[in-house]
Nucleic acid binder design. Structure first.
Length: 926
DNA sequence: CTGGGGTCCT
DNA sequence: AGGACCC
């Protein structure tokens, strides 16, 4: 949430004058900031404040008041309007025209603009908010799941335009669109006008000049930034428009030549608008910022220190002797913040990756018994494990953080933490699905950490607990996809990828290296700029190229569509067009009973096949976003069944250098690994979100709440008259997962947090819309997945044995008959979730084995591998008519879409994804 | 400070 | 492990 909001704007008392307007501008620009890195700021400052001049002139110059980047970049800052509130309004459109607040504990952390008209503000106490707006509808926002999902969806959406997207919190993104601007300029695809607002310090003089030459040309920097930023504003407008069309989200944008300025200027025109700042206006613009505290990078601690030095306003900081400042702060920080005060910021846009920690936190008035602690720990763990499963990585460290009630002494807010490594064998439970055991063991670890923090023999009083999983590593033991790919994954800072620098074929084993973030002193510090890159496509890692080029003109052209499977025809084709080589890959299953052998053999073969393909067929890999629909029981499947949510497969893309055909023939786990690597390479974090019916539930009606909402602390915090809740006002809507009061102790108790709403018809979550002309196809031509051309045998598999705790299913071949199947297809159908971690179910289920697989060999495979293959081969089980009927009504959806209430997602992605466990379960019920 | 997250640096 | 910063 943007802090700068209103105060900032209101603050625009230009008390301090427009210095020398007349002469400042022209000379300003001539001296200014040059693209060669002249001492951009010095002129403005001394012009302004001659009396202080002596203090800075040399010192400031010495301190590198210089941008090596000048105005060469084009940076867009996207700031979602009242993000949480928008998410809630998406989830329940009925809330749109009501005053809406999102509540965490006793705070309204954000509210929609209807509520703001009543004077409700961010971070306002509930009481006061209600005083100001008695009709305020409050929804609980303590569970961030949905926000996180939408947040990542937005960031990924933005990455269609450029890979250079940096997240800042849930609702802000920076985009470095320098290369896009360049492309548009080169292609002539531009207009001459700035779209949206242009920050301008109004004064007579500029009016005069405008009269003369329309656009203030005299004052315009000649480095080309004016053109670039103008195009930048057009790009921003496109993006905002698309965001609105596709995700139904409104936002503000700031366009300028660095992050600081684009962020600050974005706040100038608040809801749903955009503002562009040109270099000529920087000095005046910065002057409107006022207090140093407003500068991102100067937090409360630093601003206090500064205040002690008499530095409160930006000007104070600008004029302060840098060497003095270096004495008081970290020298580096001193330089940086002084530069920031002039609007100089060379910090790069750092491509986001997957999160480095996954944590859950709760605050409370009091927690003072070990029992309470333990139950909190369990609660955290259950929800964290869901998230881990979605994430796909394995944590190596567990950290417990607490905040004790501080008895009115000094450091009240400080938290304490202890962390420890998580033994590998414990974490192996994650992939094997032994979640209950996992939870229990982690619980013990956490409790041990707790005893390191608190002497449980003494009374204690906690007001906050947090559990974090850190050091997330990719589960894959080996980077299989390095066999398939030409380039190694790359991430990170957007500066400097000289076309020649190739780190080809390197290993990419552990977690995504997100480019080490470079040595940043917080984000706002200059990070060795290297040398400005003009961001032509060649400057990007290979895997980015397609996107950055494709995307520049019609971003939709390579839309990543969560859960959308316009893909299936192509995939069917890929299968149909089977060629010898790829067939061999699958056939190797016959020969190798050892998994390892199988894999390595497949890798080799696939490699060969790929090479072959590549030489013949260069331009084939078009549609690389596919969805998975097999009903395999991968860890992720288990995740699905555990969480009751749809898996992450909905939005995965095949690396461009991997042939779809071959890809489809690979065992699932290898496929998955490839995709995961590709994901992390792209930094396309968090595949998870896609589905989960999460999206729309339970909030249909304000008056429903009593049915759906379990009690929670939120409600108990409620101001007096709660009996009257029924009647319209003062209703707290518990959206998604209220932190349940029920004991989470056994995994069976874990409920999918969002699946409780039968009533809301659109259980589909927001996925981006695929323009109708944007069929993704594979290279192999047309038509439906050709079911009839691929005979397949069906095997009924009976799970005869009880599943001991931890035992793998024992499969037994029962019968075989011929059948037909397709591999990738749209899936949909009933939601389901498994809340049984240790099922003892048995079931008959039909699976299909491809004809070329030797049944006998197959039956000798270890059962888990059998299962893996079965799942891979099997088409998604047909849904019963009933469950088909349970699908969201297409007409309803399309109506909603046409009314703009829903994004136009034709299908309910993943909805039919079912796990094996699920089969067992449903069979069992009979 | 308050929330429930995140980031990086020391 | 803690502190600073961000939202």
């Amino acid at each position: 949430m943007d802090e700068h909001g209103m105060e900032f704007e209101d603050n625009e008392d230009e008390s301090w004058s427009l210095p020398f307007n007349g002469d400042s501008s022209p000379s300003n620009t001539s001296i200014d900031i040059g693209c060669q890195g002249s001492a951009c700021m010095t002129d403005t400052q001394d012009r302004r404040n001659r009396k202080q001049q002596h203090r800075l002139s040399s010192n400031s110059a010495d301190s590198c008041m210089i941008s090596t980047l000048g105005h060469t970049r084009t940076i867009i800052h996207i700031d979602i309007d009242c993000f949480y509130a928008q998410v809630e309004m998406m989830r329940n459109p009925k809330l749109r025209d009501k005053p809406l607040g999102v509540q965490q504990k006793y705070l309204v952390v954000t509210c929609n603009y209807v509520a703001r008209e009543y004077g409700v503000t961010k971070l306002m106490g509930v009481k006061e908010a209600l005083d100001r707006c008695p009709n305020l509808v409050l929804v609980s926002g303590e569970d961030l799941t949905h926000y996180r999902q939408v947040s990542y969806k937005i960031s990924e959406f933005l990455q269609q335009y450029t890979p250079h997207v940096e997240r800042l919190g849930m609702d802000e993104n920076f985009l470095d669109v320098s290369h896009l601007a360049k492309q548009r300029l080169e292609s002539g695809d531009t207009r001459s006008d700035v779209i949206g607002h242009e920050y301008k310090f109004e004064n007579e003089d500029s009016i005069v000049r405008e009269d003369k030459c329309g656009k203030d040309r005299l004052a315009t920097c000649t480095c080309g930034c004016h053109e670039r930023l103008t195009v930048g504003s057009q790009i921003a407008a496109d993006i905002r428009d698309a965001l609105h069309q596709e995700i139904n989200i409104t936002c503000c944008a700031g366009i300028s030549y660095n992050k600081l300025l684009s962020k600050l200027v974005a706040g100038k025109h608040k809801p749903n608008q955009q503002t562009t700042l040109f270099p000529e206006q920087t000095a005046q613009f910065m002057a409107t910022v006022g207090q140093v505290r407003r500068i991102p990078g100067i937090g409360s601690t630093t601003s206090k220190k500064l205040a002690a030095l008499g530095i409160v306003l930006l000007q104070d900081l600008q004029q302060f002797d840098i060497s003095d400042l270096k004495q008081e702060l970290e020298p580096k920080q001193a330089v940086v913040i002084q530069q920031l005060s002039f609007g100089v910021d060379d910090s790069p846009v750092v491509t986001f990756g997957r999160p480095q920690t996954i944590s859950d936190e709760d605050s409370f008035k009091k927690c003072s018994t070990v029992k309470d602690v333990r139950s909190k720990v369990k609660e955290f763990l259950c929800s964290l494990i869901k998230r881990l499963l979605d994430d796909g990585r394995t944590p190596q460290t567990l950290r417990l953080t607490i905040r004790k009630l501080t008895t009115a002494d000094k450091k009240w807010t400080s938290r304490e933490s202890r962390q420890c490594p998580i033994p590998g064998h414990i974490m192996s439970c994650l992939s094997s699905g032994k979640l209950e055991r996992l939870t229990d063991q982690l619980e013990e670890i956490a409790m041990t950490l707790f005893t390191k923090l608190v002497d449980t023999k003494e009374p204690f009083h906690l007001t906050l607990m947090n559990i974090a999983f850190c050091s997330l590593v990719e589960k894959s033991k080996n980077a299989i996809s390095s066999f398939f790919t030409v380039r190694s994954p790359r991430h990170g800072v957007d500066h400097g990828h000289p076309p020649g620098d190739s780190h080809v074929g390197q290993k990419s084993v552990p977690t995504p290296d997100r480019g080490k973030q470079q040595n940043s002193l917080q984000k706002w510090v200059i990070k060795s700029p290297e040398k400005l890159i003009n961001n032509s496509p060649e400057d990007f890692p290979d895997n980015c190229e397609a996107r950055s080029t494709n995307v520049s003109r019609s971003p939709q052209g390579c839309l990543v569509v969560p859960g959308h499977s316009g893909m299936s025809p192509g995939i069917g084709d890929a299968r149909k067009n089977d060629n010898g080589e790829s067939r061999k890959i699958v056939e190797s299953v016959k020969k190798d009973s050892s998994e390892l052998k199988t894999l390595s053999c497949q890798k080799r073969k696939a490699e060969e096949a790929i090479e072959d393909k590549h030489s013949r067929n260069k331009k084939t890999s078009l549609g690389r976003n596919i969805r998975w629909s097999s009903s395999a029981r991968s860890p992720e499947e288990i995740a699905c069944s555990y969480t009751g949510r749809k898996c992450s497969e909905a939005r995965l893309s095949i690396p461009k250098d991997v042939d779809m055909e071959i890809f489809l023939q690979l065992p699932r786990d290898i496929q998955r690994e490839i995709l995961q690597e590709e994901e992390s390479r792209k930094g396309q974090m968090y595949s998870t979100q896609t589905e989960k019916s999460s999206g729309y539930e339970e909030l249909n009606s304000v008056n429903d709440t009593d049915n759906n909402c379990s009690t929670s602390h939120v409600r108990s915090d409620y101001p007096e008259g709660r009996g009257g809740q029924r009647k319209d006002s003062r209703t707290i809507l518990h959206t998604a997962s209220v932190k349940e009061s029920s004991s989470p102790s056994d995994c069976g108790g874990i409920e999918p947090t969002g699946d409780r709403s039968e009533d809301f018809p659109f259980k589909q979550s927001m996925s981006t819309r695929l323009p109708s002309d944007n069929k993704l196809h594979t290279h192999t031509g047309s038509g439906q997945p050709s079911m009839s051309e691929r005979p397949t045998k069906t095997v009924s598999v009976v799970n005869t044995t009880k599943k001991q705790s931890g035992d793998i299913l024992n499969l037994k071949l029962n019968s075989v008959d011929d059948n037909v199947t397709g591999v990738c297809e749209e899936t949909r159908g009933g939601d389901s979730h498994i809340d049984d971690c240790d099922s003892n179910h048995s079931a008959n289920q039909t699976y299909q084995i491809p004809p070329h697989v030797d049944k006998e060999v197959f039956s000798n495979l270890p059962s888990d591998i059998q299962m893996e293959y079965l799942c891979q081969w099997s088409r998604v089980p047909k849904m019963s008519p009933e469950s088909q009927g349970a699908l969201p009504d297409k007409k309803q959806i399309s109506t909603a879409v046409s009314q703009g209430r829903l994004p136009n997602t034709k299908h309910k992605p993943n909805a039919g994804k079912t796990s094996i466990l699920q089969f067992f379960q449903s069979k069992n019920k009979k």
